[in-house]
């Protein structure tokens, strides 16, 4: 769970929220924090932040979200996308956060165990793309 959030002018960075919006094509401000995405996410147990919390951090422009594990636990399954009452494609926001993290030079928070023979190509291509800025 996220720590208590302190809203202050200094902590906010509208630039960051705008960058996520550009990259994802989704306005983070549409989200009203109902938590439906988090409730239905099959990977929420693996996340350090719930999908709704990732959105909240983006809303308040907190770049700490770039260090979070949650976007890397997202498999873009889109369970959240079809359920969001505000029409936010949360998987796109997750992808934007991952890309911004990679483009900052951060190491991807997932590693591909590609030495295993016989893994389906779909998996190898998928994980490779997740790790590529």
């Amino acid at each position: 769970m996220a720590e208590q959030m302190r809203l202050s002018k200094e902590a906010l960075s509208a630039d960051f929220a705008r960058r996520v919006e550009e990259l994802s094509g989704q306005s983070p401000y549409r989200c009203y924090q109902c938590g439906k995405c988090a409730a239905g996410c099959p990977f929420a147990d693996d996340m350090d932040l719930l999908p709704s919390q990732v959105l909240r951090l983006v809303q308040i422009g907190d770049e700490k979200v770039l260090e979070a594990r949650a976007p890397w636990s997202c498999a873009s399954c889109l369970a959240c996308e079809v359920r969001c009452p505000r029409g936010v494609d949360i998987a796109r926001v997750m992808e934007a956060v991952r890309l911004l993290s990679l483009r900052k030079g951060n190491t991807p928070l997932c590693t591909a165990d590609v030495a295993t023979m016989g893994l389906p190509q779909i998996a190898l291509v998928g994980i490779s793309r997740k790790m590529t800025p």
Binding site: A75, S76, L119, I127, K130
Partner: peptide
């Protein structure tokens, strides 16, 4: 779990 079969 999709392609995470390669990572996790």
């Amino acid at each position: 779990g999709s392609y995470m079969t390669a990572s996790d």
